[in-house]
Amino acid sequence: MSKAEEKEKTENAEKHEWEPKIVGFLCRWCSYAGADLAGSSRIEYPPNVRVIRVPCSGRVNPLHVLRAFRKGADAVLVAGCHPGDCHYSEGNYYARRRLDVLKELLEFIGIEPERFRLEWCSASEARRFADVITEVTGQVKKLGPLNPKENKNG
């Protein structure tokens, strides 16, 4: 991308106050509770994340991630219990394998690595949750929208 294009893009983004849409799949036992705690502890973080509660990070089918991108997400976050802490003993180990490969594939088709994130975040890590969201939002804002002209129907 040329400098002029980049400048135009930033300007456009500022003009329309473009805000990234981030879809967050949060494990019901750890990360969702962590997000909840962040809220009740009044920790501030950007409002760009749309949370989808899942029973376990192992429940997240890579299809869900692809679908989120297809439907217009600028970034996707999957967050679950730390390895070893899974409520179902091993769900997050499966998730780690799957999403590791998915991330590489996404990168291969040109979705920047910053747009997909797998995080471990426990129920007590409210601060960490807020930090992750802040960081992802900042990174994606810098990248700009994913395929702005893309057809979002369907």
């Binding site: 390895p83 180990y93 991330k103 690595p113 994130r117 797998l118 995080e119």
Partner: peptide, 15 residues
């Protein structure tokens, strides 16, 4: 994809 190991590498995106 039908199995896992405890020592699998962390996802590159994960901190």
């Amino acid at each position: 994809m039908l199995t896992y190991r405890l020592e699998d590498p962390e996802c590159k995106s994960c901190l």
